[in-house]
Structures are given as structure tokens and as C-alpha cells.
């Protein structure tokens, strides 16, 4: 749980990149959802039985919702994505090296 706190702060920095720097620098290219990428990457490398990914999903989804006209949409999408990824990782994939990272 404690390990997720730096990522909560980092997600705000990614929001600034996603909504400020990148779309202005590359106006003709789609900007990836960096917060979603961060959340899924964190969840992938986290122990599947821990729930830090959920907290990060809620926080990152909330941040995304704050700059979206449809409030709540991203929180649900992020939360659902993390739940699905954890379900897959927990039940079907046994990656030994992940926990050693």
C-alpha cells in the first residue's frame, strides 16, 4: 500500500503531460492515456493479492474525470481494468520474475 503513494504523485505529473505538453507538442497525433498506462503497468508488476493498483486506479481515474466532461466514466473504466487484470494475473498467469522486480 505504501509503495503506491509515489505513483499517486507521479500520476498528477502525467496528467500535466497528457493534457498540456504532449497535445501541444504533437498536435496531429493521438495522445495516449498515460494515467491508464501507469495504472495498468503498476498493477502488472504488483503482487496480485495486494490492492494498491485499485487505489491508484481510483485516484488516476478521478484525476482523468476532473478534466473530462463525463464525470465518473474514467474511475469505472480504470477500476474495471485493474480488476480484470488482477483476475487474469491471479488465476491464469504465474510470473515468477515479477515479484522479484
Amino acid at each position: 500500500m505504501k509503495s503506491v503513494f509515489p505513483f499517486l504523485l507521479f500520476s498528477f505529473f502525467l496528467l500535466l503531460l497528457q493534457s498540456g505538453l504532449l497535445p501541444a507538442t504533437f498536435p496531429y497525433s493521438p495522445v495516449p492515456n498515460l494515467l491508464m498506462l501507469l495504472t495498468l503497468t503498476y498493477t502488472f508488476f504488483e503482487n496480485p493479492s495486494e490492492d494498491g493498483g485499485f487505489y491508484l486506479a481510483l485516484f488516476a481515474g478521478f484525476l482523468n474525470d476532473l478534466i473530462s466532461p463525463y464525470f465518473g466514466f474514467y474511475m469505472i473504466v480504470f477500476f474495471g481494468s485493474v480488476y480484470f487484470l488482477k483476475f487474469i494475473l491471479k488465476n491464469y498467469i504465474n510470473v515468477e520474475f515479477v515479484s522479484k522486480l
Binding site: L17, S19, A24, T25, D65, L66, F71
Partner: peptide, 30 residues
């Protein structure tokens, strides 16, 4: 919800705008 959005944007808009302006100048140099 709208109050939260408005408050967040009020606080963070100078930062986001600064990043946006920086992006425009980067694009121009590219």
C-alpha cells in the same frame, strides 16, 4: 462533481497552461 472539477482546474490550470505553452514552443522548434 462540477464544483470539484472547477476547483481542481482553478488550482491546476496555471500549471497545465504552462505545459501547453511549452508544448507549443517545442512544436514550433521541431
Amino acid at each position: 462533481g462540477e464544483m470539484a472539477q472547477n476547483s481542481f482546474l482553478s488550482v491546476s490550470s496555471p500549471l497545465i497552461s504552462a505545459f501547453w505553452s511549452r508544448g507549443i514552443s517545442t512544436h514550433q522548434s521541431i
